[in-house]
Design a protein around this nucleic acid. Structure first.
Length: 158
DNA sequence: GCCAACGTTGGC
DNA sequence: GCCAACGTTGGC
């Protein structure tokens, strides 16, 4: 078995979509702007080579659309220190950064999007953090869940 | 645009 | 350290 973990990150495609990641230089972009402690802790746990499902929120239908990999492990997120940035955090100090980001590289789009509705209805996926902890923007995925999602994407839409 | 869920803040 | 008020997320 490959020695890596699985994750899921959410993004609003109007701000940054999976296609934007694919279109980035080397298909790679920093994943900045996370300002939630639970999500931050997951970012810190990410290892190079971990696989990351990319989920589009606030669109109809919201869905898992692609797969990326971690190419750089957690390092300080400079947007937290930039007063002009919408994610500026006045309490974060340069010498003790509160917030981190990772670099993600797009691997491939799913054969078709797997919608939230499908995730809720699919046996084995009901316990996904996506369903249980709706607002967590960076979350762990089990190998089994990852496998089921990939298989679903290869099957026909219902 | 509404609103439920839930994380964060701040008064005490 | 409790908890009410407030702000944000995100599905619908």
């Amino acid at each position: 078995m490959p020695n890596h973990q699985y994750w899921l990150v959410k993004t609003e495609p109007s701000t940054f979509s999976f296609d934007d990641l694919v279109a980035s230089p080397k298909k790679t972009s920093r994943w900045d702007g996370v300002r939630n402690y639970a999500a931050r802790n997951h970012l810190r746990s990410m290892k190079k080579g971990d696989l990351v499902l990319v989920y589009h929120s606030s669109v109809v239908p919201s869905a898992i659309v692609g797969v990326a990999e971690v190419v750089r492990e957690a390092y300080p997120d400079p947007t937290a220190l930039d007063p002009k940035d919408p994610h500026f955090d006045p309490k974060s100090k340069p010498d003790d950064p509160t917030w981190v980001m990772v670099d993600l590289r797009a691997i491939e789009a799913l054969e078709r999007p797997v919608t939230l509705d499908e995730v809720k209805k699919t046996k084995g996926l009901e316990q996904m953090a996506l369903v249980r902890l709706g607002r967590l923007s960076v979350q762990p995925v089990t190998p089994r869940e990852y496998e089921i999602v990939r298989k679903l994407a290869q099957s026909k839409s219902s």
